[in-house]
Design a protein around this nucleic acid. Structure first.
Lengths: 216, 216
DNA sequence: CACCGTACTATACACTGTACGTTATGAACG
DNA sequence: CGTTCATAACGTACAGTGTATAGTACGGTG
């Protein structure tokens, strides 16, 4: 048999290949067999390094989280928070698979912890008590996750002409009698499904609310 | 052949059965073949009523959205907004599959539009301009979606003893030197992964920020 | 050289969604 | 009542999936 030599594989190599495939062919079409084929190896070879598909997902997620820049040290805390949230969003936009990886699995891994550490450190340094810092961290994280996932989802929809056409059609089929606001605000709704402005709008609402609670 | 009589199926019946299966066996284990088996019918019978799995998903989602109560008419707008967000969260908690149905597919369907209509109506009545109303709607929706999805995800994790044990272990393996804040705030972080308080905390931040922009 | 752990292979199983072609049935009509 | 016809449900088949299990050959160690 054409047996591939030993030690050609490694967790890092597998993760890199998996990431490439997710980005080139889409997260939904991703499969272990695809990764194995790309590496010129049988599907079961991957099980030497990862117990199952989910563990590989976790590894890819942690790898991506490692790409996040450190928190800027020389800024007021609201700007630091903004920076953290924006870089996470940016990373998710650059690697759309990250949205699904974050949504579908619990957080774990050192790189992921590093990100949490950065944000929590900023909040503690700003003087927030433990409970408020933790609550704020969760709130900010879920906001970034939810709003950016949504943005990615809608952008993908817009790229598929068939799906997009049907979405427009179902929008326009709404009667102005039953749905006056939706119909009236349709253009604005279409415009606010994503983009930096939309993201910053929500983030600023959160930060404004948070600043009202600034500790003495 | 034991042929089931005609007209035993209907979109409503299929949707109800699909929903039951998603809730009893979990959304991930859901399959068209499972629905067909439950209905005592071949898998292909469903294709008479739905073009594919995604269309069935959409129908189930819209069915669930129809369960949302109307916006209370006799309250100040911040309380109305709060009510809408809370009922959506509650519905998601009662039907955990809704989180995945909302996250994975674009919005469409009349019931879904009805919900948007309610929230947009409140915001317009409060005096916000078209753009702000649309932005606020998107922000609130993605916040509820993100934070509640996260809560459901974590709750599911906690029910699986194996996954939960590993999560705790990876938490405790973090060195207090490299991750001082995460380690110090571990109990608070564990406590803020869900619950009404956590949800309301973020919602109040948003509403507080929003009230600063209340139109004259 | 012999040995052994292990990195990889091969085979197999139980599934999935769904394309395709067929068949029987309930309603409509002469 | 008998015939026709659209179509609801059928069976078969295909190309996939993740992964359990068992086998094989290679690299490093005695």
């Amino acid at each position: 048999m054409a047996r591939t030599p030993r030690n050609t594989l490694s967790p890092e190599l597998i993760v890199r290949t998996a990431l490439e495939l997710m980005e080139s062919r889409g997260t939904d079409a991703f499969s272990l067999r695809g990764v194995a084929a790309e590496l010129g190896v049988g599907p079961m070879a991957l099980y030497t390094y990862f117990r199952n598909k989910d563990e590989l997902y976790d590894a890819v997620r942690d790898h991506l989280m490692g790409l996040l820049p450190a928190v800027p040290g020389d800024a007021a805390w609201p700007d630091q928070v903004r920076a953290v949230c924006r870089s996470l969003r940016l990373l998710m936009l650059q690697h759309p698979c990250l949205a699904q990886l974050l949504a579908g699995r619990p957080l774990s891994g050192h790189e992921t912890a590093r990100v949490a550490e950065g944000l929590l450190g900023v909040l503690r340094a700003a003087g927030f008590d433990a409970e408020t810092a933790a609550r704020t961290h969760t709130t900010l994280f879920t906001y970034v996750l939810g709003s950016t996932s949504w943005e990615i989802q809608m952008a993908a929809e817009r790229r598929d002409p068939e799906a997009w056409r049907r979405l427009r059609a179902s929008m326009e089929s709404l009667s102005a009698r039953d749905f006056p606001s939706v119909v009236e605000l349709a253009p604005e709704l279409a415009r606010t499904t994503g983009g930096d402005e939309q993201f910053d709008y929500g983030l600023d609402l959160l930060l404004a609310g948070l600043q009202l609670r600034t500790p003495a």
